[in-house]
Design a protein around this nucleic acid. Structure first.
Lengths: 206, 206
DNA sequence: TCGAATACTGTCATTATATACAGTATTGCA
DNA sequence: TGCAATACTGTATATAATGACAGTATTCGA
């Protein structure tokens, strides 16, 4: 199918929202009113374009005879949170290549809102109740307070540690006696906060 | 709400099926045609009865302005998993009184399927990565293998422990040095397995 | 520089549709 | 016995809504 123009996409989404709210599709007049069109035929044109592109189906001569298609593409993105496993060196966390699949979890389950799930490798946060194989719900932000568990990028590696600020200096501490803390030298080692951990999902408890 | 008559229920279902098929609700004429009514007003009467009983909502003067309600009764249960907090002594875990709310989590996320979420109180399973305040995804079953983390009812109390079978004898072991294991005496203390823990959700990581 | 697609405004005829009003028959309940 | 709810038929009307036709302006690729 062809790509939708921004306008067409907006109309598609309005129909979806109206449908969810009312239980039936909007009339063309209602769509026109919402977009402040003076002419209803502006809507007709868009609907015909949407039908031609396969985004909707129009039932002729039937009031509100609009059927939404292409649910997977327009439907609030793939539902759930993107699941990130191995992170390719140097690539942004949310790069397509890192997303394994989407997990049917409500982002609003966590506060603040979770943006993605990150797979934990290793036992370095064991004493914080974070085990190997767990999925961490991460809120993507650069700002983290001292004491929070964060996702950080140290050099080319992505790691999960507890953040401490000691006199203007960052410290990334593991939660396991066998693992050494990371005290990056601001000059040589580049540390970037990728997000804060706001939740955890464990799918296999053995 | 009042109960629907068989005729009303049939009409409700036809509207649901038509809606799913077409993407929009049927007109009254179409409903009449399907049920071989000679008069469209027969449908109007039924729709008014359905609206009065809370099974649908009618948008006045709007063609096909039918909104289906009561989805939970006719369709699927409330989405997500029931969330169980404090358990009233002696009551079944899934009793209404114990269900705090429903959590938008896909039951199929866990293997085997999760039936409910149970709030963890205390630190007795700390070394298994299960912390105070976590939500455990529980698969309701009476059968558990040795080594699995289970939800068990000991007397009137519900507890989460790791199950071990030692020569035909049950043992419920905590995962924290400060907590004693439970070795129930089969004669005096009644132990029932309520389910096995198949997953974990932690909503606040501090 | 031509045409096609997008993005509208404006008018009008036709029909799809809801709804009011007037009936008939049956059932169950008080 | 009477009343309300169910379950329809039949006629009529106002309007909700689609769709056809006629325009204008802009953008973008060939």
């Amino acid at each position: 199918m062809d790509t939708l123009t921004p306008r067409q996409s907006a109309i598609w989404q309005f129909i979806r929202d109206y449908q969810a709210e009312a239980g039936f599709p909007p009339s063309r007049a209602e769509i026109a009113r919402h977009f402040a069109f003076r002419s209803i035929n502006a809507v007709t044109g868009h609907l015909e374009a949407l039908a031609r592109k396969g985004a909707i189906e129009l039932a002729p001569d039937i009031p509100r005879g609009i059927r939404l298609l292409d649910l997977d593409r327009h439907d609030a993105a793939p539902p759930g949170l993107p699941l990130i496993g191995e992170v390719a060196a140097g690539s942004p966390l949310l790069a397509e290549q890192n997303i394994q699949r989407h997990c049917p979890v409500d982002a609003a389950l966590f506060r603040p809102r979770a943006d993605y799930l990150l797979r934990v490798t290793g036992q370095s946060m064991r004493d914080a109740g974070i085990l190997d194989g767990d999925w961490l719900a991460v809120h993507a932000t650069r700002e983290a307070r001292s004491g929070q568990v964060v996702v950080a990028r140290v050099g080319h590696e992505v790691t999960v540690k507890r953040l401490w600020r000691q006199g203007g200096r960052l410290e990334l501490r593991a939660a396991h006696p066998d693992f050494a803390d990371i005290v990056p030298d601001a000059d040589t080692q580049q540390v970037e906060i990728e997000g804060i951990v706001v939740g955890l999902i464990r799918a296999d408890v053995s």
